[in-house]
Nucleic acid binder design. Structure first.
Lengths: 355, 355
DNA sequence: ACGCTATATGTAATCGATTACAATTGCAAT
DNA sequence: ATTGCAATTGTAATCGATTACATATAGCGT
């Protein structure tokens, strides 16, 4: 009795004694058919084991039910929680996620370009602020545009809608915290220079320092690239300095952890000899030793928010024209990696004991 | 001159002065058309800005060009590197990734079921060993099956092809290392009981202890669930013990880190008072303080391997019938969280100095 | 010169749903 | 009773590519 090939809509129609149009309606807009018919169709669908052919529906209805997510680096745990938020929202709307790692696929931009197209996806979420922008506006002015929204990162000179954390406020809170502890010599370990977040956090840091009347010493501003290793290198540079800052804000938690671990290797204790602040509040941060003082970002919420923004844009047929930029609040989590600076050596020396 | 709607294959055909069949062939199997025609078609495609309609191709060719990846928890960084490996391999084959978080979508199994279907995906990669198996064999014996492969985790009583790390060897190496350091009282902090990895590592741990003639004391075997918090709880349980183990192997790095951080809070020093071994070697592990001794898993390679296995299965039209289980080797990374046990207090006390 | 094969291309059916439009029915208002 | 409207359902065109099959052309051996 079993059919060789998968049941199609016409098989269901036959069993239910209705037309294919009715089956289609009963399944996709149940309220548009009579109750009795709906039940008959549902029963027939169950009886035949019918499963819709997604390609056929997509072709005819000119939708895809999918959203492309362009992630800079899937291996980076920072993005995984944002992805989780995106997934939660999109799956609740019946949309699926096409994931593309722009690092991996980076050698062939054409590969990515293929995804930014109405026949592929109903929308695009970009977590990578450094993609060439022409890639996101395919076909210039003509043809249908796929709605594009940014999360976390963004294009500095473009006006795509975006959701981001309040990076400026985060840097300011961190600097104010260090200043309140009594630090006068405060530095910063940057992320990649090409990255908007790095630059934004860097500028906000300098602004906050200036506003507080603190020295902005370029020697205390170190390069980095968001990796653990760049924290290690920053530690070595700090060790080599003659006039060292007493506190360092890092562009992210990885950098802060690499920094602290290398200092530990070299017998330098945090926060006694240097206060360190991270950025992001990854899960490990509060379980690091010392527990990391850091700027918390609502990562899961960033994901749900950007997904919702895109869903709204898709259903409106177009994105909100005034290119909204949503900025979500951050929080400073004060833990154990920051403390008042050590009293200057030339004065009275009451040796501080380490735990 | 610009057309309102996106150019279709027939527009390209007109410009190139050939039929749609020829255009299709020129684009998908270039070697099957004459060189001159191919060039004309490519030029016409470029001139019109033609982009293929994926839904149409999928419908006709009965393929999807997509692979579904079922991830237990996207927010867990452990999976992100495996995903990166999967992405690298699949994207190089022109396949896209449909990502589904089985935790998020877990409330509705039907939602997941929808993805395990030939019209959705050409294959499925499962990273979650606890999914109901009927979900992965839709339609019982009839109908086309979608190839399914497992990575990391697997179904204990099923014979799907799978790729996994050598968890048994990992546990054995860890126990042998602790034994070699002189530990006699060795415990284990488990992951979720329902998880195959937890159980596998647990059993291998017990076996290794028995083989080495060490005590297997059930009081030293603690429950856990792979989270940082479960490490914290394990630490408290350890503190409450009267007869404490001198070394603990943890089911994963998160647990180990939670454990160490809580002990640190309580003034207990690792490894002086307790040796701790993790499992997985997440990026942070070597930058933790103390640097974590742990079992390294080839996570990226797990991803590339399982993806390759699936790709082979798809192209063969069927998966290797003898349900191959590939086991990738692990390595023990000895760092600073393990040391010889403290000499018994009643004996001579030569206080060991900590770095 | 003839037939045969190999190569290249064209014609049109096909994949399986959605949906515009038409048709039917029931019911209320006139 | 007749008309009008709303609610259901059916008929058939349609989405845009792929591909089985048919056809045309060229090269080759005898």
């Amino acid at each position: 009795m079993k059919q060789k090939s998968a049941p199609k809509i016409i098989d269901v129609a036959r069993v239910a004694g209705v037309s294919t149009a009715t089956v289609s309606r009963a399944l996709s807009k149940p309220e548009s058919v009579a109750k009795s018919t709906r039940e008959a169709v549902l029963a027939a669908a169950a009886a035949t084991g019918y499963r819709i052919n997604v390609a056929a529906r997509n072709l005819r209805s000119r939708r895809t039910g999918a959203v492309v997510v362009l992630v800079p680096n899937l291996g980076n745990p920072f993005f995984s929680q944002i992805l989780a938020g995106i997934e939660a929202t999109l799956s609740s709307k019946g949309l699926s996620i096409l994931m593309v790692d722009t690092m991996q696929s980076g050698t062939r931009l054409d590969f990515i370009r293929e995804y930014v197209h109405p026949s592929r996806a109903d929308g695009v979420i970009v977590l990578d602020g450094s993609l060439p922008q022409d890639l996101l506006r395919p076909g210039g002015e003509n043809g249908k545009q796929v709605p594009v929204v940014f999360a976390c990162e963004w294009h500095p000179h473009e006006d795509f809608p975006s959701v981001r954390a309040d990076n400026g406020q985060g840097a300011r809170l961190a600097i104010e915290h260090l200043a309140a502890l009594g630090h006068e010599k405060i530095g910063y370990v940057n992320g990649p220079e090409a990255n908007v977040l790095s630059q934004f956090r860097l500028n906000a840091t300098k602004k906050a320092l200036a506003d507080l009347g603190k020295t902005v010493n370029e020697h205390w501003f170190l390069k980095g690239d968001f990796t653990l290793q760049s924290g290690v290198l920053a530690a070595r540079k700090w060790l080599d300095m003659t006039d060292r800052p007493t506190a360092l804000l890092c562009a992210n938690d990885e950098t802060a952890i690499g920094l602290i671990s290398e200092l530990h290797q070299c017998g330098v204790h945090v926060p006694d000899e240097l206060s360190v602040v991270g950025f992001d509040d990854v899960d490990i941060a509060q379980h690091y030793i010392p527990a990391l003082t850091t700027v918390w970002q609502p990562r899961f919420e960033l994901g749900t928010t950007v997904a919702q923004m895109l869903v709204d844009g898709i259903s409106q047929g177009d994105l909100n024209p005034d290119a909204p930029v949503m900025t979500l609040p951050v929080k400073l989590k004060v833990r154990k990696s920051t403390a008042a600076p050590k009293p200057v050596a030339s004065k009275t020396t009451a040796a501080t004991t380490a735990a």
